[in-house]
Design a protein around this nucleic acid. Structure first.
Lengths: 300, 300
DNA sequence: ACGGTCCACTAATTCGAATTAGCAACGCTC
DNA sequence: GAGCGTTGCTAATTCGAATTAGTGGACCGT
């Protein structure tokens, strides 16, 4: 900035005023012009760190992501978030929450806001996530409603069997429990499905033996749904004849199954946009995510 | 820091000396003790932004990621990178390179280093990626070697059909071309596979009609491989009878296919560790990634 | 001609930490 | 006991931008 000031024959203060369109400051058109040209010629770009020090926080928004958000809608969510932040001169950076604590990261970047999609969601009412976790309730309801409408009232909720999957999977399960009753599902059993193909087959087989009354499976996400489908195939079960399966998140992989996996598609990008607005303290009410839609594949 | 100084009855300079173990500075044990206790009691954490301003760059390493890195090894790579950086007091942040330029992000965070896995890789010799892109050459060779060893000499290289996929897919293709000759593949055709199931089927069908001499497909990654498998199934082709298929990156999804997808597993975490070392200017020679291994599934 | 009001700009301070220069006090040597 | 080096600390400056408090000059009215 000092260089720009020198080049245009004014003080650094004036440069700052011009470049930031400072209110309550009157700058002559000639000076403004000279400063802008000098800035342009010198290729001046504001030094984000210095600015962050002065302003108290950087123009960065941090997205803290549970590793369980994989494929599917999180890409759209990220895109919406990134795009909307970009419109307001901010930048999105993603941190994959893996074990290590968030605190040092926050201290290192001093972000304008943190969109936290990892950890505990007990107070999700107040979470600045664009209503994402909150919306999951409605989407889970769509998932279960589809099963109910196709005649299933005793359902298994399949979630990842990995231990580290716990926190977020538990949230989905709670939402499913809450939704089940209100949409006419009379019984909801829990079916953990490990990642390993062999264990998954054994686990699903055992589960079905113990719960012959279950006629359909609603999965945590498409990945888990595909594990279930693979297990059922190995067990010689017909889908949806013997058991219906519905995924969640409508990933590419579900479409390659035969028959294609029925799943729930979420308007993730709009949620991302909302999250961006909220993070910056702007009005988010004009961004309205579309409802979750069931992508009929043939497995449910 | 001023508060810590006040609480321990010394100057801020002294606090800085103590907390940073400043060389060429002698601090009495008593003072050091008092400062450390005060810092601890007050819960002092260094302000990353201020430090970054003074030091010229933040203790952040930026990973710029092509959206084509999905699932599979990039998770391990990220984990290795993150973990190793954490050991040295640094933090990894990920940016998903989607259209918008990298420059404003770099100006905003002034990272210690950028690990760039997006864009042009023409000068990959010098890239600070832990030898990742470079290693891809060897891994691609493993992929093709497996096909050659199972009797295939006329091979198709399947890459994503999406336009935006171009830059990185082209790199893989170039590497494949370079490897083909030296491992005894006499002909390498290019097979673009779009994401849409219907178009993929049509595209693969057309390709096979035009290139009846092709006996095997090596894919850009497992996702593309699964697209090919789905297309072949729709076309009524037997795998590996009519056509062998080998993926790349050994994702979970490949394992669910019937028969499971044969793929190439990469020691991504070690590459991530190396990248971290390189980014911080440390010696990376003691981290040696294991070789790529072929995970036999049954499709090749 | 003098007081007042704008206008257009500058000087000085701030954010928090790191670093360089420097300054007392003390001990040692000759 | 004068000179010199060491020990243990402090003061002052720096990084780059934003902001608050001015300040000199033109212009206006009476």
């Amino acid at each position: 900035m000092r260089d720009v000031a020198a080049a245009s024959g004014v003080s650094p203060s004036t440069v700052s005023f011009v470049l930031n369109d400072a209110p309550h400051q009157t700058i002559s058109a000639a000076t403004r012009e000279r400063v802008l040209r000098a800035a342009d010629e010198l290729g001046y770009v504001p030094h984000g760190v210095a600015r962050a020090l002065r302003e108290g926080s950087s123009r960065i928004v941090l997205l803290n992501l549970d590793p369980l958000f994989r494929g599917g809608s999180i890409d759209g969510y990220t895109r919406g978030l990134d795009d909307e932040l970009g419109r307001h001169g901010h930048v999105l950076l993603v941190r994959r929450a893996g074990g290590s604590p968030l605190e040092p990261v926050v201290d290192a970047v001093v972000p304008r806001a943190v969109v936290n999609l990892a950890g505990i969601y007990d107070e999700w009412e107040s979470a600045a996530d664009g209503g994402w976790v909150n919306g999951l309730g409605a989407h889970t309801r769509s998932q279960l409603t589809h099963l109910q409408e196709t005649g299933h009232v005793v359902v298994a909720f399949a979630l990842p069997g990995d231990v580290e999957a716990a926190p977020f999977a538990q949230v989905r399960l709670r939402l499913a429990r809450a939704a089940a009753a209100s949409v006419g599902i009379v019984q909801l059993e829990v079916l953990p499905v490990p990642r390993d193909v062999e264990s998954a087959r054994a686990g699903v087989g055992e589960f079905l033996a113990m719960h012959p009354e279950v006629t359909a499976v609603a999965a945590f996400d498409d990945v888990v749904a595909l594990r279930v489908l693979a297990a059922l195939r190995a067990l010689g079960k017909q889908v949806p004849g013997d058991l219906a399966v519905i995924g969640f998140d409508a990933t590419e992989h579900g479409a390659y199954w035969d028959p294609p996996l029925t799943s729930v598609r979420v308007d993730a990008e709009a949620f991302g946009r909302r999250a961006a607005r909220q993070a910056l303290g702007l009005d988010a009410s004009d961004v309205v995510p579309g409802p979750a839609t069931v992508v009929a594949g043939g497995t449910a």
